[in-house]
Computed example of a mutant assay.
Amino acid sequence: MLLSALLLLYRTLMVFSRMTRGAMMGIGFTVGYGVPLIIAVITVASTAGNKGYIQQDYNCWLNWKETKALLAFVIPALTIVAINFLVLIVVLCKMLRRGVNASTQPDEKHPLAVIARCVAILTPLFGLTWGFGIGTMVSDKFGIHVVFAFFNSLQGFFILLFGTLLDSKVREALAGRAQVQDQHSQTDFLSFRGYGGEVCN
């Protein structure tokens, strides 16, 4: 989620700059796998010795009462949500500024509709619904727990929907592949018919 937001911020602010694929992969693996691994190793090493890593009889297995091991998840998660929220604000400001400066065409959508669509798509992709987790930490009300569980259980579905199925490049690639397969099947069918005609004659 953090890398998606940072990539969007980079492409929004550095329009004429292009990062190499190797650099993007290196940053992605470092931030996506290296940093969580370091956090997990430090947390386990500092709390597992006195059996303070796991907490029994609680809805979260990370210990909170004795060693505060839960902070190893809460602090990075909320930091990512805060950074992604700031990125969303920057992107929306850029869109608004571009919408004000640009000459509006009759076929263009209203800027508020574009912004609403952008927020609806980027909120699950950036994991901003994890912000409801603050409510679950400070309140015992059932409603906030239901909202948090509902939105976060659908995050993977929204990522699949917005990040893959509704992506124009993915659809173009799938359409191109389907056309290639259709052409192959027609060629195979015609060659089969030709072969069948030769056999029948």
Rank of each mutant, 00 (worst) to 15 (best):
A120W: 02
L86F: 08
I42H: 13
R18T: 08
D140W: 10
T67Y: 10
P36I: 04
L62S: 12
R97Q: 10
C118S: 09
I39W: 10
V44L: 12
L112I: 03
A48G: 10
P76M: 07
F126T: 00
A113I: 02
N84K: 05
L78M: 10
T20Q: 14
V119H: 06
V138G: 05
A40I: 06
C93M: 09
L92Y: 08
F29A: 12
G143F: 06
P124C: 00
D140I: 04
K94Q: 11
M95F: 11
Y53H: 14
C60R: 12
P36V: 07
I54S: 15
T104A: 14
S103I: 06
I39L: 11
G133V: 00
L128V: 00
G28Y: 12
I38N: 11
Y53K: 13
W130T: 00
W64Y: 13
G99D: 06
V35P: 02
M95C: 06
L71P: 03
I80P: 00
A48R: 14
F73E: 03
G133C: 01
F73Q: 12
L92V: 06
I38H: 14
C118I: 00
M19C: 12
F85V: 04
M19D: 08
N152G: 00
N84Y: 02
A77T: 07
T104C: 11
L37A: 15
V74N: 14
M19G: 10
N59Y: 15
T129F: 07
R97S: 10
T104Q: 14
N59Q: 13
T79I: 01
T104F: 14
A82Y: 07
T47R: 13
S46V: 05
A45G: 08
V44T: 11
P106W: 05
V138F: 12
V90T: 02
F148M: 02
T129C: 05
F126Q: 04
T30Y: 15
L112M: 08
Y33A: 15
C60P: 09
G52R: 12
V74T: 11
W130Y: 14
V91I: 08
K109W: 09
M25H: 13
I42F: 14
D107S: 11
V35M: 09
G133D: 00
Y53N: 11
L70P: 01
T43D: 08
I134V: 08
L125W: 01
K109H: 10
V146H: 06
C118T: 05
V114D: 06
T123G: 02
V90W: 07
V35G: 10
N152P: 01
I54N: 14
G99M: 02
V119N: 02
K68L: 04
I54D: 13
I27P: 05
I80S: 11
A113K: 13
I134T: 01
F150S: 02
T123S: 03
T47S: 11
D57E: 15
Q55M: 13
M24T: 08
P36S: 13
A116H: 05
A149H: 06
G127M: 03
G131P: 02
L71Y: 13
C93S: 11
Y53V: 00
T20G: 15
V41I: 07
T129E: 02
R117E: 00
Y33W: 15
V41Q: 14
S46Q: 12
I89M: 07
V91F: 08
V147Y: 05
P76A: 07
G131Y: 03
I121K: 06
M95L: 09
A149K: 04
A102N: 06
V138H: 09
T123N: 01
V81C: 05
V119G: 02
I89S: 08
G26I: 00
G143K: 02
